[in-house]
Amino acid sequence: MSSNLLRKFKENNLSSRSLKKDKQAFIEIYKLYVDDIYRFIYFKVGHKEEAQDISSNVFLKAWDYIILNKVDKSKNLKALFYKIARNSIVDYYRSKKDTSPLKSLENTDLKDIKQDPQAVVEIKHDYERILKLLNNLKEEYKEVIILKHINELNWDEISQALGKSKGSLRVLLHRATKALEEEDKKDLDAKKIKEDK
């Protein structure tokens, strides 16, 4: 818990310094949030290189907004990154015809997996399964699950990122969870039937 508080304090400090156009603080903020932002974009667009490009643009745009004093200093910087990321994804969808979701984690790096290659393949197989379940959901369900259960944002941050009230977000998450469980059940049933055959 103390480590969480420290992390929280560090984030707040870096965030406020970045909003005051502190370049070094912004670089530190980038290091803190780049993984989450990349992951969020990657699960949405399904392509590694595109996710990298979009992620880079997110931080560049955020810095430009800070320089132009377009950022409300009372707002959370993390929420700003997610907002920009969402808008960039929408632009990406508009420009690209291929909106196929992520199907394979073949070229994806996994964090600190100290296991044999066989284990890694199995882990990746699990990841692909859950991703497949996520991809079967509506975009807004997928979004809220990623933010809450994968990137572990709090309700305030999600509310600012998605522009919705906390109450509606809780309802949305509940429905998203139900939908995910439905998909999981369908997938398990389908596997059973396959195995039975």
Partner: peptide, 12 residues
């Protein structure tokens, strides 16, 4: 499984 997806990270 959702929490495990946090292991996915960008290329260093």
């Amino acid at each position: 499984q959702l929490h495990n997806l946090k292991d996915i990270e960008p290329d260093k």
